[in-house]
Design a binder for these strands. Structure first.
Lengths: 353, 353
DNA sequence: TTTTAGCACTCACCAAGAGAGAATGCTAAC
DNA sequence: GTTAGCATTCTCTCTTGGTGAGTGCTAAAA
């Protein structure tokens, strides 16, 4: 899609494209020229619109599912619509209140808030909702605890500033004295405090060097323990995937499997979204369509995502969004995503202030 | 199913029922009398077998998908087969070695072992594998940690004897002094050590009473904190659900949704399995078929489960199993489940010895 | 130059029908 | 008790023909 050209459209062409997208979104049926005329209320005959639609097809914005059927937007058509034609709908007061209310329920961790967010988005959109935990490079270690469990087993708990606890445990070859563990714990806390979780390995290794000769045994133990800490995979919550099965485009078995695929491993989608958000205007909102979603050769999905920030003007800390068929009501859903992202940011920052 | 009668079968009827089940399991097509004769190599004509099959149908063991189609086993037919006819196949040495190898990989927690188990079972069976963490009533608290995170936020960590860490965190109304937290932590550790996780509330409440007048503030805080600990839902790992989509019986959209349903909430299945295992011979292995699986009105599944024990002659600590269509190769899969359950028990007990 | 009426054409969709094939149940004979 | 024979039942597939929505093209109108 990167190098595809988007030929410019005159006013009439824009109007027709917009109409086709709108009609197709609500009906899921190929759109014919007559229908467009009726919808637009123009004083033109279907034949005229037919010519416009033929032009739009030639430029790559529309396509026919078979000769002499109505037109359907291509990915490029959707993209043009989203970028140039769509007017984001304001949410009603009631809708805003509802979102606000659902997100101001008592929640004590980022985990809970984002799980709730994905649920809320799924409910509000009748599509699948997704919500990512704050990305690691903004997460910072607050505390490391080593807890002796049984003679040779030690649990490692890493708490970050978002209240997320990363746990792991290790079975050692030798027994460890409580004294040794305690001094190790102290050492780790000192060297890891406020270190980004991303950097856990490098920082520790470095600060370990200083100690190496002094406390050889301690150092070895520390390395042994830390290699057990799994690099925290950035977690994403995905809710309401069953809504997708209601869509006519996901009835076929092959399409069904693609949904399962996402549930099992959303990482390609996450990666694509992060990239797109980083390059988007203001790093605010992005829409990916079809192949852009990077879901193993399934080009049926569309996704709308917005970043949230922990401070008004800060860096994006993570994103939330809605996943559905390409044929989604973008105008309405975009505003839901935007507003919710704002609220999530507020709620998260309130957590630790 | 509870009150259904299982009319006794004579030898020929048993042979025919067994043949029908076997053939249907491999072909997924209704089985005709001719096919049965060929398979059995008997010196009888199809007409004779037809009569037997008609009898079996009358008794409820077989059914026709439509007049003048071949026969298919009913749930009752499968059940009779599993209980009386099936001969559990020995695993080959290679198969046993493979399972052993996969389970003796370095793993440091019950969590990892059972996740790996569900994966292994899915792979070996080409169905979905499931594995439950050791049930709570055998899990006992080893250690409680209260970790101050930020001024008003406290994380609660409960470690059980299986190396599983239950975490939660709470935002308090007032700030808490480290001293208070420390004494509270000490108090909780004393009163909760070796207490079953099931009983956390009752035990704490009781032992709190003793302290009530002495240290009022401490007690209130403890209660506040403990109400934040979510009752740990017994976790079950489910892997390989995508294998199910390959089965012809799960092609239709409605069936597909039932699979999703299980992925989202397997608790009815878990409950049914626990119950069945408790009443099974030796509390060892059980097979549930169709409606017995308790999956909201979807009667297409079958499940084979075995309990594992932490000590040779101990109580069952949890179960593992295989979920697939009713039409599963029970003879082979049963032995896989049995053997794996034995290995899991060994691996778990080795963890904390 | 733009728009439109008219018309032939294309294609999906549906219903009805015909024929093949796999099984069955039943009856009467072995 | 077993079986051969046969009419019967039902699914599945393929064909056929009709309908309707929509298109592209051409030539005329604005």
């Amino acid at each position: 899609m990167k190098n595809t050209k988007f030929p410019p459209l005159n006013e009439r062409e824009q109007t027709v494209l917009e109409a086709v997208v709108h009609i197709y979104i609500t009906t899921a049926e190929p759109v014919g020229s007559r229908t467009v005329v009726k919808k637009l209320g123009l004083n033109l005959s279907p034949a005229t619109i037919r010519n416009v639609m033929a032009d739009l097809e030639e430029m790559g914005y529309l396509t026919q599912v078979h000769t002499s059927s109505g037109r359907v937007p291509t990915d490029m058509g959707y993209k043009y619509y989203v970028n140039h034609l769509m007017k984001v709908q304001e949410l009603t007061l009631a809708e805003r209140e509802h979102i606000k209310q659902e997100l101001t329920k008592k929640m004590d961790s980022a985990d809970q808030i984002l799980r709730q967010t994905s649920h809320l988005l799924a409910l509000a959109s009748h599509q699948a909702g997704l919500a990512e935990l704050p990305v690691e490079n903004t997460a910072v270690i607050r505390r490391v605890e080593l807890v002796p469990l049984l003679e040779r087993q030690v649990a490692i708990l890493i708490l970050d500033n978002f209240g997320v606890v990363h746990t792991s445990s290790v079975v050692l070859d030798d027994t460890v004295s409580p004294q040794l563990l305690e001094s190790l714990s102290k050492f780790l806390n000192e060297s890891l405090f406020n270190v980004s979780i991303d950097n856990i390995y490098s920082v520790v290794r470095e600060s370990l060097k200083k100690f190496f000769d002094e406390r050889r045994k301690l150092v070895e133990l520390a390395l042994k323990i830390l290699t057990q800490v799994e690099p925290p995979t950035n977690q994403m919550f995905l809710d309401g995937t069953n809504n997708l099965f209601d869509q006519p485009e996901f009835q076929e078995p092959t399409k069904v499997r693609s949904i399962i695929g996402i549930m099992e491993d959303p990482s390609p989608l996450v990666k694509a979204l992060r990239e797109a958000l980083a390059h988007s205007e203001n790093q605010q909102r992005t829409v990916l369509i079809g192949s852009e979603t990077m879901m193993n050769n399934i080009n049926e999905f569309g996704v709308i995502a917005s970043s949230y920030r922990l401070e008004e003007e800060g860096e994006p800390a993570g994103f939330i969004g809605i996943l559905g068929p390409k044929r989604m009501p973008y105008e309405r859903l975009s505003s839901i995503v935007d507003y919710t992202a704002g609220m999530v940011g507020k709620m998260l920052s309130r957590l630790w202030r």
